[in-house]
Design a protein around this nucleic acid. Structure first.
Lengths: 213, 213
DNA sequence: GCTGTAAGCTTACGACGTAAGCAAGAGTGC
DNA sequence: GCACTCTTGCTTACGTCGTAAGCTTACAGC
């Protein structure tokens, strides 16, 4: 009289893995817990997935697939700008993702699509192959770097007050006058502690525009 | 008649940890192996170090301390440029470091010194606090992001031929025309596969110069 | 019914970080 | 010389991890 449960599948495994990572970060994603979440023993997962690394690759690609790619007809600059913002937003929605994304070689279908789109927009806008490669690399280095940094910046975290007070004694020592003053400015509200992606992105895009001629 | 061995110390532990990470990456750095390297049991390390996380924080700060900071008298732009290059080089010397650097909140003495230096150069060059913060954030997001990306880019690895041939079938499918063509250009030697830090860095610095007015 | 194949289960191994308590030696005060 | 404390390193053990090897069960096609 037991209802025959839905059989496992690579897709079901990856969905559960994504949910687990979203809920508790990479640490919460273990094969045992993943099995538990699916009502199955850990070893059963290996019928549908080569190993844990494949799971990680799968969920990273899933996140990349969430990046909405604007139509190239918007013009290369606008397209690259909103592509960058969309990537940043998708990654922020899954805070565990950037570290994974940047510390592995990713060749999932969504990633390849995403790269090909980017190269295509730049090429069609008249950038040389060399400049296209450099431009792509520069933008993505910045976007991913910025996102990862932001996620680990104490200021962006709810326990900012704790962190700040824990470090105040370091700054008070007098060895780091500029940091101390900067902290004072941020705490006084003169200046947003939360960094802004578009500042640097626009800097890069304007520079690329000038190089394109 | 056994020679009394050199007693452990936080410094000796960190030095050995750094050597271990340099030799085999983060995975090779375990408390047991670290003890073994020092001729000591793993648990003995805990007398000199709070836990493994403290070890990681220690060696990351060690790497940061290797970044040579140019004299601010060179002018802010030249100083920021060679600071960036120096940071990149130091991180490349310790390929395991960028991932660690970017996935934790770092408040070691070398890191604080490094940040304070950067803020100081920008402030003394006349940047507002707001612009100083944005500039610092943009530069470092790019530098770290670029370095981490480069380390995980298959092209930078000795097994590039393998990696390329393993992915050729994906490109050959026709779904990714621009990537395919780019790969062809790189393989034909028309274009360096190895990315260049200074391209993006100069883009950013030129943009900052314009903003400073 | 028989048999082949797939899906999930069981057990087990060798890592890992580290908590708790023990042992042995080095100073120190008398 | 002797007890005392403090420091340093060692022993043992626990719970967790990824996953190799082999087993069981259920169903499909004949």
């Amino acid at each position: 009289m037991t209802a025959t449960r839905e059989p496992l599948s690579r897709e079901r495994v990856l969905n559960a893995a994504l949910a687990l990572a979203d809920a508790g970060g990479t640490d919460a994603l273990t094969m045992r817990r993943l099995g538990q979440e699916l009502g199955v023993e850990a070893m059963s997962l290996y019928r549908h997935v080569a190993n844990k690394d494949a799971v990680l690759a799968g969920i990273v690609d899933q996140v990349i697939s969430e990046i909405t790619l604007p139509p190239p007809s918007d013009g290369w600059k606008a397209a690259m700008r909103s592509r960058g913002v969309a990537a940043h937003q998708a990654l922020i929605r899954h805070p565990w993702a950037p570290a994974l994304l940047m510390s592995r070689t990713n060749t999932g279908p969504a990633m390849l699509r995403y790269i090909d789109y980017t190269l295509g927009v730049l090429r069609e806008a008249g950038f040389s192959w060399r400049l296209t490669d450099y431009a792509w690399n520069t933008m993505d280095s910045y976007i991913y770097g910025f996102t990862l940094r932001k996620l680990n910046f104490p200021i962006a975290q709810p326990d900012y007050a704790d962190v700040a007070s824990a470090h105040v004694h370091l700054l008070a020592g007098g060895g780091f006058p500029y940091m101390a003053e900067m902290t004072r400015h941020v705490m006084a509200g003169n200046h947003p502690g939360d960094p802004d992606l578009t500042f640097g992105l626009d800097l890069i895009l304007d520079g690329l525009e000038r190089l394109r001629g």
